[in-house]
Amino acid sequence: MGLFSKLAFKLLGIDDTELPAEQIGYIKDISKEYSVPEILKNTFGEFVDSLLHKHLIEGVVVFKENSLIYSSSPDILELANKLYEMFSSFKRENKVLYFNVGSWVSMFEKDEFVYMIKSDTRLCEFELNAVAKDIAVHGKNIFLEEYRKIMSFVKV
């Protein structure tokens, strides 16, 4: 750098010898805020939390052969049942049906299961498939256990 620009930098108080701290802070913020958690499998609650967090979704409901088999929370069941009926009458092979109900609700069938996923933004099929896959790979036993608990509760 020439003497003149050095002087100008000094006068204007520009320090170009340091890395831009804000910019690096910004990158650190991204990694903190959006980091992708491992799917946890110890308890039902942990599993659902990590699943929703990983995929940035609000809720998920799974049906099989016209009956609901699991849901991330009870408060989306009513919506799920309503939309499931609609989905069943519209259903096309390998196609996702999107509903805009304030949030986005996506419904699709995969390996004999029907998934309903509620999210803030409209997810594409690669994102939806990843949710379904995580449930199929990690969640089956946990959901089944939870399901049995509910069923035994119902019997009493």
Binding site: P20, Q23, I24, I30, F126, N129, A130, D134
Partner: peptide, 19 residues
């Protein structure tokens, strides 16, 4: 550069999210 690194980080996260 930080802009490129920030975008790469978002890309990495998007990749992990879809497994």
């Amino acid at each position: 550069h930080s802009l490129s690194i920030a975008d790469a980080l978002k890309t990495k996260i998007a990749a992990q999210r879809i497994n």
